[in-house]
């Protein structure tokens, strides 16, 4: 009568079959991980009936694996679980900061990095942080799997690169060496329980002399999608991450931004603040590398 259905498949194959069946029948199906975005939308802006496909019973999307070269984070792992993992906190302090900023303790008990990514909000906190660490999306398709860099996964406000019948399994992150560290900062008027007005994730690699040899900068909430800002990275590489370099990277972020004015902030404000966040985040990441060495 309500037109809603709930499915809890137990394998990737079963999930893909279910999604495929719905697509072929022209029925709407929506993947459910933590549900912290889906349930809110269901009650407000988007009340149309659909099948909810709960993927939390799949082993693959709950898999966390720290390998020698790569780390795999299953798409449905709640951020609270990630934050409690000491190894992840050591390897990706910035990404974990971002995951720790998603909503409240209660939200973190459910919300997943994969869900944050698929929801494709311009303000999703983990997206710039994932971009900064060079994460790639691992996607199950009818014929196997495919991978996409995070910055190519989100294609617009609320839109992602998954095509009908595909499922995001998780994220593959290059494992950083001791000379690399990341950081994430976002700005919100409240300390918690808020949506980013601007966000910036960075990752920097320093050589023994303290010169930056590689950098990645992702910004969020200042454009329809989170962006990889190569100009900001270029401003950092080859410098000692001194004030001038930080200012240049910040300026690059501000000019890469194309924000809107809304209830959360003005375009002008967002443009300025994303530059401030970049400067501060690079400083934090740099200090993290140096602290490793000390």
């Amino acid at each position: 009568m309500t037109g809603f259905a709930y499915h809890a498949p137990t394998s990737v194959a079963e999930t893909l079959a279910l999604l495929g069946d719905h697509a072929r029948a022209g029925r709407r199906a929506q993947v459910l991980a933590g549900g912290t975005d889906v349930l809110v939308q269901l009650r407000g802006v988007d009340r149309t009936p659909r099948a909810l496909v709960d993927i939390k019973g799949l082993a693959e999307v709950n898999r966390l694996h720290v390998g020698a070269d790569h780390v795999f984070i299953g798409a449905a792992i709640p951020s609270a679980h990630l934050n409690e993992n000491a190894e992840l906190a050591r390897l990706y302090p910035g990404l974990m900061e971002a995951a720790d900023l998603i909503g409240s303790t209660q939200i973190q008990g459910r919300a997943s990095v994969g869900g944050n990514l698929c929801n494709a909000s311009p303000a999703g906190d983990t997206i710039p942080a994932l971009i900064a660490v060079g994460a790639r999306c691992v996607i199950a398709t009818a014929s196997g799997t495919r991978e996409l860099p995070v910055e190519a996964f989100v294609t617009g406000v609320g839109r992602n690169a998954l095509v009908s019948g595909e499922l995001l399994l998780g994220l593959s992150l290059p494992r950083p060496g001791a000379a690399t560290a990341d950081a994430y900062l976002r700005f919100t008027p409240r300390t918690e329980m808020d949506i980013a007005v601007a966000g910036c994730g960075v990752s920097v690699t320093l050589d023994a002399g303290g010169v930056c040899t590689a950098a990645r900068v992702g910004i969020g909430a200042v454009a329809p999608t989170a962006l990889l800002v190569e100009a900001a990275a270029a401003a950092l590489v080859g410098t000692r991450l001194d004030e001038a370099a930080l200012n240049a990277a910040g300026a690059a972020c501000s000019s890469a931004a194309s924000p809107i004015t809304d209830k959360r902030g003005t375009a002008d404000y967002r443009r300025k603040v994303v530059g401030v966040l970049c400067r501060r985040a690079v400083g934090i990441a740099r200090d993290r590398v140096l602290a490793h060495r000390a």
Binding site: P189, R190, T191, E192, M193, D194, I195, K263, R264
Partner: peptide, 8 residues
């Protein structure tokens, strides 16, 4: 309550 920002 998300955007009517009462103190937390």
């Amino acid at each position: 309550f998300l955007d009517y920002r009462m103190p937390v």
